[in-house]
Nucleic acid binder design. Structure first.
Lengths: 176, 176
DNA sequence: TATTGTTATACTCTATAACTATA
DNA sequence: TATAGTTATAGAGTATAACAATA
């Protein structure tokens, strides 16, 4: 399959190896392309989704870097935070609240449980479900994670500005 | 491995199957947990990353849904838009501009080329690289994608408000 | 030596489906 | 029959490393 595609590509190339004048970019700069700069985004500039995606990449990378010493990723942090604030929650409840697939939460909890941060305790009222709790060391660890997460949040404020960060939180409050 | 974890889980369960009064949530609501509502997010509320992640999930899902008829995903749209605005760009240049791994761009272009939307033409000046162009049908298709993407963008404006959307674009302009 | 495009691998994440044990 | 947790699989997406052709 890949071989076929490659063959087609080469074939298409050999009949089209004409050097044409480079067309102007649609953003009106008219600079050269492969010069590594001034590459226009055109319609992408007006799309909230594109900006949000790039911002999320930056913010998650900073979170991961800032909490690298404790080896905690954003989703793990969110799971521990919700369990810490609502002990006894079932896996379904946590999954629904955070918008995580319940199948994925299984593995997340497996790793948190293996690190003795979270406990699965059989529910007394429904033997199908588990009541989730932070362990003693999980509570202590979460306190530290929180301090590091606050540091990360300061990075965000430095990056986009204190007021902009607050405005952003206001605008997106409906999605939490 | 999974079997071992399961065994540990059951063991831990059998010695901890005590019914305790449900602790209050940390956000002070004090409601029941598994009642499917009023589950506190605690520290998560103050984290830009969490709000941004939830928003991005929503926005990408709406984009995918709105452009489902033409089977175009956000990344494919961004690649076609940048090539359309800067014809002749190399794969490296596109990858760098959009923050995509060059290895991943290979597969993205394979599928766009298979659909006759994009062409890889051997560069006249550097025989290692390909000059990327939209095909004739790719240009026509992109015009349609753009109309659908504009419709999606209206959904965003409806969801968070016209002014908020514009404020968001301003705040995140540095990340594009 | 370095870079471009490619292939390959691994790990994360999303989306499903199916199984079990309970309800 | 429906639900909670689990297992499995497939597809995106991210992160690397290595290779051939070329610079």
């Amino acid at each position: 399959m890949a071989t076929k595609q490659q063959a087609q590509r080469r074939a298409a190339g050999s009949r089209a190896a004409v050097h044409r004048p480079k067309p102007q970019s649609a953003n009106g700069t008219g600079r050269d392309h492969d010069a590594e700069r001034e590459i226009g985004l055109d319609a992408l500039v007006g799309h909230a989704g594109y900006a949000v995606r790039r911002f999320q990449l930056w913010i998650f990378q900073d979170f991961i870097k800032t909490l690298a010493a404790v080896d905690i990723r954003p989703t793990q942090y969110s799971v521990m935070t919700v369990i810490g604030a609502n002990p006894g929650l079932s896996q379904m409840a946590v999954a629904k609240r955070l918008g995580i697939e319940r199948a994925r939460l299984v593995h997340l909890l497996d790793s948190l449980e293996a690190r003795d941060l979270v406990n699965r305790i059989p529910s007394a009222t429904d033997r199908r479900s588990h009541a989730l709790h932070l362990t003693t060391s999980g509570k202590a660890a979460l306190a530290q994670f929180r301090r590091l997460a606050a540091e990360h949040e300061r990075h965000v404020a430095e990056k986009i500005g204190k007021e902009n960060r607050e405005r952003l939180l206001q605008i997106l409050a409906a999605f939490t």
